[in-house]
Nucleic acid binder design. Structure first.
Lengths: 358, 358
DNA sequence: AGCGCTCGCGTAAAGGTTTTCAGAGCCGGA
DNA sequence: TCCGGCTCTGAAAACCTTTACGCGAGCGCT
């Protein structure tokens, strides 16, 4: 009926017992032949494999995990999968996991702490051995407590917790941190604007308490200071992230002042919104205003103009997270890894318009 | 030491036995109280729940799945997670799955049939009850055979297979199809160009054998024909998908001819590449050439100019896939569902330049 | 020839949960 | 008073695989 050979059992899954029976061995031998955990004579092995193929045998991962105590599964938790940056990180995790035959499950929280907790709980039930929490977050007491709870809970069942782009947990908390060096990236790109001659640079997209953004702001301020500019030169607009926020904040800013020649957007999506707002206001980039972004999302080179930005190799971040977590079994707990970034120069930065530079 | 209360067991996971013991009931009663599958007096129930909370009990999903025969898990398979369209579909699946307490795992194939097969096999082992294959594909014999194999294999263990944006399988194959009506979408957007006055419209991004693209081409041709234009008016460039392909093909085309006033890109990423190529050639959009895309990816409104395109609600596609698969248990096998699309008008279409319209 | 070692393989236990079956206690009706 | 039926609960089986243990046979060495 199914057209798949006369050996198909019509109901229920075929188990290792049936394979063993058909191969004329015990389930123990069949298991050894199939899993390769224990040597088995070639002839026997071939007979078992043959039987398994004939019956279209599929091992039951649950039974296997039950006795084996755990399973090869990694979980990656992001705010939303559709954000280009998070998608790249998730892809990195998935790729690195797949390379080692691990399964990768993704959870989206939408930024909701409740959903994050539920998902971590679910991962505990599922026996995930690696949970990777991705994305900046504002660091308050509730957050610290939550992470401490995750870390201990996962640790007690032998699983690892990795924080990507999140603040380091309190000392003693068994979690790893892998992130980009936001401060040097921001420093570099601010320096790029400074050496193009800009002196009045506004930072668009601050989010006080969010350690990733705070670090970028710090790098921005440091670069300004190193150029001998007084601290009050710094102008940080705390509008948060995302295209809509960038658009709104830029529009608003233009109403208040035009006393700036460059914009450092905290994120490429913010830059996208800002670029549109500038265009709507009849300003040309980089003729009237120069703009830089952060993260180098895949479409940044198609912005108008192509965006000068800081490349944060997001996929590599994901890969590094699983690699590091799986490498140093015990030693690494509490370790803090920083990944390098580099600036990519495109067409959105030019000299400041004459007469407006300081 | 852990600071989490004096009831923490230091080694190993706490099982339902320990919960039962502490609550003074049997494991059967504990299970009933915890899972809610069977009524239990409020007092007993409270005692069990209390014990579980005190011990930080976490159910073992494997044991549960082992006895329950399967588990609430959906798998979504895409070419790559970083493609905006696929990411949105995956997000839809994840969201709909999460709404029902299901787990969602994603697999990326990179377009490799081998990896697709391995992943489906893995899902069989894991006991996924729903596998969703997303994304157009060129339909050859090997493909049809592969899908037939997946469908039968999954069906025999009671799992469902959903094809999103893929060709319908041969009749009798137990798989559902959910996709957008590419033909009417393409028809509509072509009509939009026609009523703006364009007569020489080139379709950029054909991929013969890919049913999704073929359908768009068909809609494009049909709209042309309905306007009384001779068939040879149609000009399809088979460059495939992606930003790079669009850029290359557009650059190439401009070298050969400028006898067109509008471009219908088979996909927004192709449009992104084409827009850049047009800008590089010094052509203005929509002044010299009008451009439309397909899919309405999130950044389409930030293209230069904002892109008129066809909105294919990708997240809804993902949600619909799981909803439909889970709704009609038996009846739906082989069903073919079409989701509507609509055109979204932005600034990339204008009247053809005077003297060049037919 | 005899001893001991290795190899191959089968038996059985273990892993944690759900569920079936049945027993116990209780209430109400006859 | 007795019995039917209902509610609550516990013992035990079942789900499928892996692995520790042990046994028998074969082989090489003395």
């Amino acid at each position: 009926m199914r057209g798949m050979g006369n050996d198909m059992v019509s109901k229920g899954r075929v188990t290792i017992r049936e394979v063993a029976e058909r191969a004329g061995v015990s389930t123990a031998t069949a298991s050894r032949a199939l899993s390769g955990n224990h040597p088995v004579p070639a002839a026997t092995r071939a007979r078992v494999l043959r039987a398994a193929r004939d019956l279209d045998y599929v091992a039951n991962a649950h039974a296997r995990a039950l006795v084996g105590g755990g399973r090869k599964m990694a979980a990656v938790v992001v705010r939303q999968v559709t954000s280009p940056f998070y998608a790249q990180v998730a892809e990195g995790v998935e790729a690195e996991a797949a390379d080692r035959g691990w399964l990768c499950v993704v959870g989206a929280t939408g930024g909701d702490a409740q959903r994050e907790m539920e998902f971590v709980q679910l991962m505990r039930e599922e026996g995930a051995r690696l949970v990777i929490l991705v994305g900046g977050v504002v660091e308050d007491d509730a957050y610290r407590e939550r992470v401490a709870h995750y870390a201990h809970a996962l640790d007690s069942s032998g699983a690892r917790l990795v924080l990507c782009g999140r603040p380091a947990p309190d000392p003693g908390i068994p979690a790893l941190v892998v992130e980009f060096d936001n401060e040097v990236g921001a420093h570099a790109v601010t320096g790029h604007l400074l050496s193009a001659g800009h002196r009045r640079i506004v930072f668009l997209g601050g989010l006080p308490g969010n350690t990733a953004l705070d670090a970028r702001v710090a790098g921005y301020r440091a670069a300004l200071a190193e150029h001998g500019l007084p601290p009050e030169t710094a102008h940080v607009v705390d509008c948060g992230l995302g295209r809509a926020a960038g658009h709104r904040a830029m529009t608003e800013l233009l109403k208040q002042t035009r006393e700036f020649t460059a914009v450092f957007a905290g994120d490429d999506m913010v830059a996208a919104g800002a670029l549109r707002a500038l265009a709507d206001a009849g300003l040309s980039v980089p003729g009237d205003v120069s703009v830089v972004g952060y993260n180098d999302i895949p479409l940044a080179e198609d912005f108008n103009p192509p965006l000068t930005t800081v490349r944060t190799p997001a996929e590599e971040l994901g890969r590094a997270a699983v690699r590091i977590a799986l490498r140093d079994p015990e030693h690494a707990a509490g370790a803090h890894h920083l990944l390098g970034t580099h600036i990519v120069v495109r067409d959105s930065v030019g000299p400041p318009p004459t007469g407006r530079a300081l």
